[in-house]
Every structure is written in structure tokens, then in C-alpha cells.
Write a protein that binds this DNA or RNA. Structure first.
Length: 575
RNA sequence: CGGGCCGUAGCGCAGUUUGGUAGCGCACCUGCUUUGGGAGCAGGGGGCCGCCGGUUCGAAUCCGGCCGGCCCGACCA
């Protein structure tokens, strides 16, 4: 017997009008369909239907975790400050870490993630290489005090996450589990019905991390990514090898100084002189942690990737407005020729073969054309600096990259010994020597995934759930509740479907047909069974498939079997 | 943290410029009619106009402070 519910007694406060605060489809529809309500900025209550869908996502995650041998547990949401001091993150994490004190003045934080707790838990019990590997996970509420919560569940402060942590003696073992996790994450996305890409992700300030993000493709996604038909994909910030689409200028010409009054941008410059933007070179100014001035040269049509800039120049930061005054350099006319003394000049690898550069002259309102590296100026460091973009060549095959936006729904990480070393979590290896654990961590944004699904599955009428995440699978909609012919037919269909193992709700409210149809489409029940006078008189009901809008007339006698079969088929397609 | 905007009934909004004691639509309650795509008519209930202070005979409206929210950016990932 599966779930059978009555609309009349379900707490589903649907809204006819769009809430003013919601911009994105997922946010708007979660509110309108009565699935969530806001309690404070970035903090939401899950109402019964929202909770049902959320729970289904959790269950899928749980099954996939269990399938690769990770074990479920539960850690505290409130964590003592001492552990965060040990790892160094009490000071490193910044204001996103929500800190609080108990009545005795002891310091705690709300867990934004659980590396500290898990490492502290395990370090006393896992003593030998014989105990390894171990993989543990939990599904739990997390808190990050986001500067600017927005987009409903996509960027909340309180959110539900599955986080897993693994401990290994060898890199091979870590790699093996990491691969298993990545496989599980792919299956989770598939079972949620998400169109997704695993992408190479930002390796961050701490180099050498191996990490993959799973991106649900969405117009409104926060992340920009590039991908190729060959299967390679990357977050633009992390795409290490952008293969530019424009050839180098290989014909040397004399350097020429030109007056360029008022031309501050590459676009202005290119237009005024009738050249392409990629035939100029853009120079961005930044500084090192020590305050040394840095010039970064990229092709005129390209954006600088700040993440890459930082790996080329440790501690790199772009200049603020005041810095331009401090260094006394003309914003809009910067270039590598005669740079201010002491400045470090870095140029993008893609400019190596270009011999005629159109660059700023470091004199207000003047530029040089035809400047040649080695003849007219020197480059101190060559590095990969540009932000990858659609149209670039694929670094693995001969293809051309395409662009997309995505929502990061999950990420897998090889942490190495970062936490085990700082927190003294070691085991005895085969020779009896103490070694820090090799660790991996793996997160799935559960509540965020719910929003991501809706971003991909909605239309002008509401949500059109994939059956695996729908709060309920079938809605039986009797058009006239009081009718003594219609009602018994509807009620027995409802009971029979439930007996057949289908999650079914009956809309027993004394509402007009239009209201019921509108709510059913808004909430997005995948299959809607319309029972009306007209049909029942002919011995039939009407089945509507929410996703496609297709309608089919079925004899009452065959309806249960047919619908149960359709649901079963839809389930197995996402199993 | 910068820039823009907003807090008036459960929701969406008008009223604020020009001060005179609060209104519209939806929702809710009652009755009648209606009943296959968000019904019609009639009647009704619901407001510390975000909070505090000031100006004034009188403040939703003017002034100051605070709180909360939304959008863009910065930040974060």
C-alpha cells in the first residue's frame, strides 16, 4: 500500500499570484506551489509537499551512497570552536562561519561543513592501516552566513547537504573511492532527471587539489562553464587550457606611438582604429601580497581569469580605484612598454607568437601599435591567464567549446592530508610508522538540487516534475465531489492506485474544475486522472501527462492497471 | 560593505509629491445562483500604514534614527 492522501486535508497553501521577492522559476514555484515558506533571509521552512520531494532526493542520495559502501551517520550541527582552531579555519573561514557562545561564554559555530568533526571523531578509533579505507556520510542541515542570500533554495544560508568523508592509507585507495563517488554523483543526477555536466573545477588557493563539480545546466545558473562534444567540460574559472580561436600576428612592423584621446577601453580603441579587438592587447593592473605592481597582458578580446592570475602571481589582487592614483598609472592606457620601475610584467601564453602588439603607452591618451616583445619591451613571466570562453578550442580534441551556465549541485574533492596533518589524525602503516590519513570529501547540495530540478522542469503553468522527485505521483481529480456517480469512481481509482503501490492524492475539495486543474499543474503531479460526469457516463476517465500535456481516454476498468504501468515505467527510467 | 529601490489586510498593490484619520484586486466568512480550465451577484470580517523619536491642532504622508527586505556590484563558491 503506497501513500494515499486527500487534498482537503493536506497543508498545501498554493498562491495564485507571484510573490514579489522571487526572481527565479524555482524560487517562485516553490513558494507558489506551497512547498516552502521563508522564515528569514535565506532560511526556509519545508511544508509537507516540499518535504516529500526533498525526502525523495535524500533517499536517492542515500541509496547511491550505500551502494558504494559509504556508511550513514549523523554529526552535530553545533560545533566547538577548539576543533576549528586546530584546523586553522576559525580564522580562515571568515564571516561566513556563524559563530555563537553558550551561557558560559564558550565559543561554538554552526557547521558549514564537517571536516573538523569527522577528523576529530575518527582520529582516536582508526589506528591502523588495516582499518582503512573508511567512508562515512550524513545528510544534515548546514549553515553558512552568506553575505547575500538569494534565489530561494539556490543560495540560502541554511540548507540541507549530504556530506561524505573518506580516509585512506594510499593515494590509489583515495583515487578509487573518489572515482566511485564521482560515479555515484553522476547516477544521482541522472535519477533526479537533471541534465548535467561533470566539470573540471577551481583548484582554489591551495594548489594540487583534485576536484570535480557536477553542474545542472540552467539559464540562471551562477557558474559559467565550457564544454566539448568529446565530453570534456570545465568551469570557466578552472579551465586551465584555453586554446584561443584567433591566430597570432606574425608580421613585425615598426612601433608607432599614437594619440588616443578619451579612448579608455579596448572596444573604443578597436573601433576608432578599425582593428579587431583581438588585434590589441589589454593590460590589467594588480598587485602582489607585498604590494608590488603587476601588469597582466591578455588578448584584447579576452577576460582575465582572476583565479589563474593568482596562481601565476601568488597573492595577486586587482587594483582598486585609489591604487591607480597611488601607483600614478593611467587607467585605460596601460601597457608593457616602459612600465613603471619595479613592475612585474606577465603576459598570457597565447600572445607568445604575436610580434605586433597594440598596447597602452603608460602615458594618458597614448597607445603604441606594432610593439614587439624583445625589441620594444620585455615580458617577465609567461602564463596562462585568460578566462576560457565558448568558441575556444577544446584542450583534449579538435572540437570547439560551447558555453553554458550551471548550478553546482555537488562536488567531489581529494583533500589529501590537510586536515589529518593539522589535527594530528594518524594511523600506523605496515612498518608501524604514524602517517596522516589521506582524505576525500564529497558534497551533494540536497535542497539546492530540489531547486535545480525545478529550474529544469517548469513551464508557464507550474512545475513538471520528473516522477522520481515529484511529491506525489498521481492526482485523481473528480470534477464534482458531490456527484454520486463521479465520486465513487474517483474514490475507488484512488484506493486502487494506492493499493497498486502508486503514490496517489485525490482532490476531494469542493472546488471548481479550473481551480483543481490549475493547482494540479502548479504543483506538478506527473499524472492527473480527471474523472467527470461526461466521461463516467461513457465508462471512461481522462489521463493527463503533466510533462507533455498529452491526454488519453481510458476505460475505467483498465485505468488502474494502465496508470500503474505508466508510473512503473517512468520510475524505472529514472532508477 | 558601496549603489538603486521597497516596507500599507494572508498575498499582490494604490494612496505619500500637495498632511485632514485608509483603499483596490485576490484570498477569507454568509446566502443565492453556477459547476470540464483560477465563477457571478449580494452582504460581511480583517490594519499599531515596519519600529522609535521629532515637527504639527492633526502624520501612512514631512524630518531624524533604527530594523527588515529586494535588485546590481563587491564578497563567497
Amino acid at each position: 500500500m503506497a501513500v494515499s492522501l486527500k487534498m482537503s486535508s493536506l497543508y498545501v497553501p498554493t498562491l495564485k499570484e507571484d510573490p514579489a521577492e522571487a526572481e527565479l522559476a524555482s524560487h517562485r514555484l516553490l513558494l507558489r506551489a506551497g512547498m516552502i515558506r521563508k522564515a528569514a533571509a535565506g532560511i526556509y521552512t519545508f511544508l509537507p509537499l516540499g518535504w516529500r520531494s526533498l525526502h525523495k532526493i535524500e533517499q536517492i542520495v542515500r541509496e547511491e551512497m550505500d551502494a558504494i559502501g559509504s556508511q550513514e551517520m549523523l554529526m552535530p550541527a553545533v560545533q566547538p570552536a577548539e576543533l576549528w582552531h586546530e584546523s586553522g579555519r576559525w580564522s580562515d573561514y571568515g564571516p561566513e562561519l556563524m559563530r555563537l557562545k553558550d551561557r558560559h561564554g564558550r565559543e561554538f559555530c554552526l557547521g558549514p561543513t564537517h571536516e573538523e568533526i569527522i577528523t576529530a571523531t575518527v582520529r582516536h578509533e582508526l589506528r591502523s592501516y588495516r582499518d582503512l579505507p573508511v567512508s562515512l556520510y550524513q545528510i544534515q542541515v548546514k549553515f553558512r552566513d552568506e553575505v547575500r542570500p538569494r534565489f530561494g533554495l539556490l543560495r540560502g544560508r541554511e540548507f540541507i547537504m549530504k556530506d561524505a568523508y573518506s580516509f585512506h592509507a594510499t593515494q590509489e585507495s583515495l583515487q578509487e573511492h573518489y572515482d566511485a563517488m564521482a560515479g555515484a554523483y553522476g547516477r544521482i543526477c541522472e535519477r533526479l532527471g537533471l541534465e548535467y555536466r561533470p566539470v573540471e573545477a577551481d583548484s582554489g588557493q591551495i594548489g594540487g587539489k583534485i576536484t570535480t563539480e557536477f553542474m545542472a545546466l540552467a539559464e540562471n545558473g551562477e557558474a559559467e562553464l565550457v564544454y566539448c562534444d568529446c565530453g570534456w567540460a570545465a568551469n570557466v574559472e578552472a579551465a586551465t587550457t584555453a586554446v584561443p580561436r584567433h591566430p597570432a600576428v606574425t608580421e613585425a612592423v615598426p612601433m608607432e606611438k599614437v594619440h588616443t584621446p578619451g579612448l579608455r577601453t579596448i572596444a573604443d580603441l578597436a573601433q576608432a582604429f578599425g582593428v579587431a579587438e583581438y588585434d590589441t592587447v589589454k593590460t590589467m593592473a594588480g598587485k602582489t601580497a607585498e604590494g608590488r605592481l603587476v601588469f597582466l597582458c591578455v588578448p584584447g578580446d579576452r577576460e582575465l581569469n582572476p583565479v589563474k592570475a593568482e596562481s601565476a602571481v601568488p597573492g595577486f589582487e586587482l587594483l582598486e580605484e585609489e591604487d591607480f592614483k597611488t601607483f600614478d598609472i593611467p587607467k585605460g592606457s596601460l601597457g608593457p612598454v616602459d612600465p613603471p620601475s619595479g613592475a612585474l610584467v606577465v603576459a598570457d601564453d597565447s600572445l607568445r607568437d604575436t610580434v605586433a602588439w597594440g598596447v597602452g603607452a603608460n602615458i594618458n591618451d597614448y597607445h603604441y601599435f606594432g610593439a614587439q616583445p624583445g625589441r620594444d619591451f620585455e615580458i617577465d613571466v609567461w602564463a596562462d591567464l585568460v578566462l576560457a570562453a565558448p568558441g575556444d578550442g577544446c584542450p583534449v580534441c579538435n572540437g570547439t567549446l560551447q558555453g553554458a551556465r550551471g548550478i553546482e549541485v555537488s562536488q567531489v574533492f581529494q583533500l589529501g592530508t590537510k586536515y589529518s596533518e593539522s589535527m594530528g589524525a594518524t594511523y600506523a602503516d605496515e612498518d608501524g610508522n604514524e602517517q596522516p590519513f589521506l582524505m576525500g570529501c564529497y558534497g551533494v547540495g540536497v535542497s539546492r538540487s530540489l531547486a535545480a530540478v525545478i529550474e529544469q522542469y517548469n513551464d508557464e503553468n507550474g512545475i513538471a516534475w520528473p516522477v522520481s522527485v515529484a511529491p506525489l505521483e498521481v492526482a485523481v481529480v473528480p470534477l464534482n465531489v458531490g456527484d454520486d456517480i463521479v465520486w465513487p469512481v474517483a474514490e475507488s481509482l484512488w484506493r486502487d492506485l494506492a493499493s497498486a503501490g502508486v503514490e496517489t492524492v485525490i482532490d476531494d475539495r469542493d472546488e471548481r474544475a479550473g481551480v483543481k486543474f490549475a493547482d494540479a499543474d502548479l504543483i506538478g503531479f506527473p499524472y492527473q486522472v480527471v474523472v467527470g460526469k461526461r466521461g463516467v457516463a461513457d465508462g471512461v476517465i481522462e489521463l493527463k501527462v503533466r510533462a507533455t500535456g498529452e491526454r488519453e481516454t481510458l476505460p475505467i476498468a483498465e485505468a488502474t492497471e494502465r496508470i500503474a504501468a505508466l508510473v512503473a515505467q517512468a520510475r524505472s527510467a529514472l532508477a
